[in-house]
């Protein structure tokens, strides 16, 4: 507990590779993840269609957990469905809706169902969603969840209870890839970098960031990260969001906390002849710029409900699996040889 977050000596990762996403990142290939927001209607056919669009191009697909504090099909159910379909989900968990018992039981449940990537966040506050009167849980914060999940990887529950069925059976050490969030646009920036360092100390393996419209800010953030050497243990994936029109940009600039949208970006979208085309072009340009930033190992595409655009954006950005050199890893995963 006395370890300092900024210590440069952090023990190297000794566990075997847990997932396709981890394989891609460990092999120093440029990683691409996408995102599916589960529907509210209890029917997974929509998810199936979205998954078909993404399965060939993305290394893994994040499944959001009651995003924006609005009720959707639970993340775990959709993750299990993707595993059945032969996909690779990233199970997102928030501290808003679960106490430490639920967090742990959902994690080991997800593992039992074949989920191998987990992404832990504190979560939007409950008053932003459709049930503002509900009781938010926040038994733990994101750093605690990561610490607890890392302990589970070593075979122990948060309380110290061992993961084994009887005292004589061997300790079970579920091996999964553990992710955390970061926001380069939050203030004060050095504190957000320190928080990433705390998450690294807690045991995180990869980081996915808030979506980027302000590239210079990401550049500054990553410069601080690289300066401290945090990128050596953590894989940084920068969030990218293609938009169809200026409206969501204006909404994000004013209503969504923790996002920075420069006025010129909004003006550019407003003045566009073909906003959809402009949105794709803007996402591609952002990708090309963040790719050049030292310490960046991948991108995370958040499309809200415009999954159809992902292949097009990746094609134009030169990030199709064969261009990134990950086709072999994908096919190895399909034949059941992930590690």
């Amino acid at each position: 507990m006395d370890n300092k977050a900024s210590d440069t000596q952090v023990s190297p990762v000794s566990r075997p590779c847990a997932s396709t996403l981890e394989r891609v990142l460990r092999d120093r290939k440029f990683a691409v993840t996408a995102e599916i927001v589960p529907p509210r209607v209890p029917n997974l056919s929509v998810v199936g269609k979205k998954f078909e669009l993404l399965r060939e191009v993305a290394d893994a697909i994040n499944i959001t957990d009651n995003a924006s504090a609005s009720v959707k099909i639970c993340s775990l159910a959709v993750c299990a469905y993707l595993v059945q379909q032969g996909g690779e989900p990233v199970f997102q968990v928030t501290a808003r809706d679960r106490n430490r018992l639920a967090l742990q039981s959902d994690l080991i449940g997800a593992y039992a169902l074949g989920v191998r990537n987990v992404f832990a966040v504190t979560g939007d506050y409950i008053n932003m969603g459709d049930h503002p009167a509900g009781k938010p849980v926040y038994d733990m914060d994101s750093v605690h969840i990561i610490q607890m999940f890392d302990k589970i990887r070593k075979g122990y529950m948060d309380s110290g209870v061992e993961l084994r069925s009887t005292p004589k059976t061997p300790l079970v050490q579920p091996n999964f890839f553990l992710g955390a969030a970061a926001n380069p646009f939050g203030d004060p920036m050095p504190f957000h970098v320190l928080k990433v360092a705390k998450k690294r100390l807690a045991g995180a393996d990869f980081v996915q960031t808030q979506c980027t419209f302000d590239v210079p800010r990401v550049r500054d953030f990553m410069a601080m990260v690289v300066d401290k050497g945090y990128h050596e243990r953590l894989h940084f994936m920068i969030g990218i969001m293609p938009v169809k029109s200026a409206r969501p940009l204006e909404f994000m600039a004013t209503e969504v906390p923790g996002m920075r949208v420069p006025a010129e970006t909004i003006a550019r979208m407003k003045g566009a002849q073909n906003p959809e085309e402009e949105g794709i072009q803007m996402a591609v340009e952002t990708i090309q710029q963040v790719r050049e930033i030292p310490g960046v190992s991948g991108i995370h595409l958040m499309t809200v409900s415009w999954e159809a655009v992902v292949p097009e954006v990746l094609k134009r950005a030169g990030l199709m699996p064969e261009q990134r050199g990950v086709s072999e890893i994908h096919s190895a995963a399909k034949s059941g040889n992930a590690s």
Partner: peptide
Amino acid sequence: CPKQMRNGPCGGSMNGKCEV
């Protein structure tokens, strides 16, 4: 902090204001 964070700001902390 409304989220009772004990290890630093959440992702919504901007310009010194609380997101909630």
